[in-house]
């Protein structure tokens, strides 16, 4: 076991653990935001740079600080490492800068975006961003395209986290989409308007941290915060059949996979469960899901809770208090 300290909180983790994973073991505010890393997708991470932290002491053996901020999602811990996340002004500055970069060409079309309310970029900019737009240039624009008959791609909103690409590479048998071009004109697309048809392809919607990949069967149906996410399951021959059913009254508006407190899917689900099964009779409803994450959905208090959200004055993030 290896001892690390993150924001003054010590934790013991296994050799080979990354700083981010160590922080997740502590939980709460210590956890750096991760927009591209996804623990279930091999090789993901390192790209968005929102998870940058300061290593104030490299290890017990070599206590020198690391010269630059490091991506916590892809930097393994060393015994005796001292990490600063929110306690480092440098990290807070850098994170603000990263949010600025991510929003530079973002259309800010939250009012018409289906992801609003459960968008990692919204949470991130709320937590760390600036109050005003700093660019006066026109934003990059791409046409909205369908990749397959159930998935919409709004490339304007994409932050090029590559999660959907890794997902398709690793968990479907034929990847039909990827990153075309490079630099600021790179885009996620299929090759010559190919359709993404694999029976697990719908999961790219869930791994996408923003509203770039959205569910066409849920398009403009409702704002997510009006819906109640319920744990539900069914007998499914393709996947586990364990899903989150988003309901309004007795109607199922959409089906997604269940996500954990870090916003990651617990078990990927098949397209049949996601897109085809929208009747109450299709499902056994178990009960409401707990929403632990900072989110506007939790602000809606659909669930009886003692906690309330307040805004943390240092981090600016919403945290939960008794």
């Amino acid at each position: 076991m290896i001892k690390v300290t993150i924001d003054n909180i010590p934790v013991e983790v296994e050799d080979g653990t990354t700083i981010l994973q160590a922080a997740r073991q502590i939980g709460g505010k210590v956890v750096p935001p991760a927009m591209c890393y996804y623990s279930k997708l091999k090789g993901s991470g390192g790209k968005c740079r929102t998870c940058l932290v300061k290593v104030a002491q490299g290890s017990a053996k070599d206590p020198r600080p690391m010269p630059k901020l490091v991506a916590s999602c892809s930097t393994p811990v060393q015994d005796g490492m001292v990490v600063q996340n929110l306690t480092s002004p440098e990290v807070r500055e850098a994170r603000k800068a990263i949010v600025e970069f991510l929003l530079l060409n973002h259309p800010l079309d939250c009012p018409v975006c289906d992801q609003a309310g459960e968008c990692d970029l919204q949470d991130l900019s709320f937590g760390y961003g600036m109050e005003e737009t700093t660019t006066d240039f026109e934003r990059r624009e791409y046409p909205v395209i369908d990749i397959g008959d159930k998935i919409k791609l709004h490339m304007n909103r994409c932050i090029l986290c590559y999660r959907c690409v890794y997902f398709a590479d690793q968990l479907t048998d034929k990847r039909m989409h990827g990153v075309l071009f490079r630099g600021d004109v790179s885009e996620i697309s299929t090759f010559v308007q190919n359709a993404v048809t694999n029976e697990f392809s719908g999961n790219v919607i869930d791994v996408c941290p923003v509203g770039a990949l959205t569910d066409k069967t849920f398009r403009f149906k409702s704002r997510v915060w009006f819906l109640k996410p319920m744990n539900a399951h069914r007998e499914c021959s393709i996947c586990s059949g364990k899903v989150a059913a988003w309901m309004f009254g007795n109607e199922i508006y959409r089906i997604t996979a269940r996500k954990d407190e870090f916003g990651e899917v617990e078990e990927f689900i098949c397209n049949e469960c996601r897109f085809e099964k929208k009747e109450l009779t299709d499902w056994v409803i178990e009960g409401p899901r707990h929403i632990k994450r900072q989110s506007v959905i939790s602000a809606n208090h659909y669930e009886e809770r003692k906690e309330q959200s307040i805004i943390d004055p240092i981090a600016g993030t919403m945290t939960e208090v008794e």
Binding site: G46, K47, C48, R49, T50, A97, I98, F101, L102, L104, N105, T135, F137, I159, L160, Y162, V179, F181, R182, G183, D184, V185, S186
Partner: peptide, 21 residues
């Protein structure tokens, strides 16, 4: 540099084109 950035990481992808503009 804007033209040659691979576009993987946000500071380089967005920053180079911003500086160019």
């Amino acid at each position: 540099y804007r033209h040659e950035s691979c576009g993987q990481c946000s500071p380089c992808r967005e920053g180079t084109s911003w500086m160019e503009k």
